[in-house]
Nucleic acid binder design. Sequence first.
DNA 1: TCTCACTATGAGACCGGTCTCAAATAAAAA
DNA 2: TTTTTATTTGAGACCGGTCTCATAGTGAGA
Lengths: 356, 356
Amino acid sequence: MDQSPPRSSSVTVADVARKAGVSKATAARVLGGYGTVSDHVRDAVTAAARALDYQPNELARSMTTGRSGTIGVVVGDIENPFFSLAMRGISDVARQAGFTVILINSGEDADTERSAIRTLLAKRVDGLIVSPAKESDADHLREAARSGRPLVLLDRGSETLDIDTVIADDRHAAENITRRFIALGHRRIAYLTACDTPDHRFRAPTDINTGSVRRRIEGFLDVCQKAGLERMEDWVHVGAVTPEHTRCIATVILKSSRRPTALIASDSVIGLEVFKVCRELGVTIPTDLSLVSFHDADWTSVTTPPVTVVRQPVYGLGEAAAKLLVERLNGNSAEATRVVLKTEVVERASVAAAPA
Amino acid sequence: MDQSPPRSSSVTVADVARKAGVSKATAARVLGGYGTVSDHVRDAVTAAARALDYQPNELARSMTTGRSGTIGVVVGDIENPFFSLAMRGISDVARQAGFTVILINSGEDADTERSAIRTLLAKRVDGLIVSPAKESDADHLREAARSGRPLVLLDRGSETLDIDTVIADDRHAAENITRRFIALGHRRIAYLTACDTPDHRFRAPTDINTGSVRRRIEGFLDVCQKAGLERMEDWVHVGAVTPEHTRCIATVILKSSRRPTALIASDSVIGLEVFKVCRELGVTIPTDLSLVSFHDADWTSVTTPPVTVVRQPVYGLGEAAAKLLVERLNGNSAEATRVVLKTEVVERASVAAAPA
DNA sequence: TCTCACTATGAGACCGGTCTCAAATAAAAA
DNA sequence: TTTTTATTTGAGACCGGTCTCATAGTGAGA
């Protein structure tokens, strides 16, 4: 069967049809797996296709069917373990359902995100999963939703948007932690997040454009207020956008005369940096500072002491978002859904009673 | 300018042309940014496009131009920090060069990888970056290379394949570590990797299908032999494919009567698990066991003691692969290149002299 | 004033599939 | 045997762009 080496590329249905001695339409029916064909013809076409090493052109196929078999995903930063794990969830479900994934990193920048969505729409993705950098300007999200292609928001989403959303119950988790801190006698509790404000200062939750973080801070402030703690807004620090920034901010906080006795890190990248700074500054955990970090990252369980964390179902978040999207793609057109997954506080040894 | 709400989708060049009162060809010239058009007509078309909210169909464009503006990436597991960081490098370069990235997870499975490549080829990606799970059957890689679309191998690559490859100098790093261990008096040195063999036992480097790991083991064995250590093959352990497997294997190794005094973990996921097992078993690092891990992961710097690691330029690996690919895409058709990036041993506190 | 080179536009083929519709053939019913 | 119905097949339009080629228009040079 030593065929002539099949030429590099572009064997088309027409070529196969010619070789098999049938019409283009018939060959297409066999190759595309639709319509009815006699067994006899099917075999002939299949054989011809194999002989010519026919490779279907998915692009042309999408062109006519209108479905590309792709879903677009826009995340803040794939390097962040949070997103890479969520991505794993998305990609597993997508593959299962026969979709491939186009990934774009927004770098948490709204403009990049906007153009990313435009690009994906132009490439005619069947649906989108986006983890919006800022919720304040959500026009491009509305536009995407209006384009008719399903959109699911991941981890972040605004209540005002009528779009499918998958989030964790961040507010509840933050309340939970704050309550524990207060019960342990802490009064000076800091919250440190990457989200930034124009003047790098925090005044009210509405300053925060990232839903998940806003909800956490709301929960934090809420519990504080109910416990009679005043002006806790001053203990919320924003702008820990890079490890260097975090290091800088953490150093200032921990060197200050009114040093916090407890600190909540809004993600594991921040938590890690805070942990390092504590070590450098000789701040002992948990004696001098009680530390809790969001996201159950690798490192949190092997430090001395191991760090108490809020375990978010990150893989599940991605999984749920992708499942929701696939459902929509299969024609489910019910009202916009809001999936909220449970978080869990993993108690380790970085939390103790406030120093006297 | 309260336009009638632009209909959901599919405004085509023809529609714009009609509205602007020009031919389809002319409208296409303006919209596609090619050919020559008078300023007057350009304005008219642009205005019409805006009014109708024209969105180009990248699919149709790719159809005729033959370029899709996409590159396909196949990695073992995006959840692994190694790959997510490399992915960041790839995706940054790709975006810069105007390409989008389709990501597929192979789960380190050769069959999945094969079908992933087929899918990507069918979707007419312009080029491919693959981190092959197994090098033994590389037919699909050859096929991909033959398809005419450029292919770059990432982190792993076989010497026998005439394909662009970007790797780190793993062999050198392994030699380096091994030499240090031996100089410190270690004789029982274990090597633990995720790569597996059919019977889960290691005999010779040729058993190992993953180039990067094979090169490391070769370096390890080579230095051992030169130092007069015999039968060090027995100290190479394979099959640490999941954290659970790793845990299990590490426990057996560390509980054995001839316990190693030094251990090299082939990646950070394995290193982390070994670290945990040591803690559980009361094996003190570095007194009882000297530990070195490949990949400078987050956690390695915050443990007690911090772990000595081989820092690979992971981001750079992805970056270099993408750059190489983009060059090919721009027509550079020189011989297959082999880029080797330097590694660096980051000395921390998990290595000490062998116990007496 | 007439030719020449050059620019701007239009008509229509083309990419590689899918899909509609009608014709041809085969099988079943009258 | 004739009519009816079901099953295969082929011809060709279509998706939404790009691109070739021919035609019309325009200013420069002779």
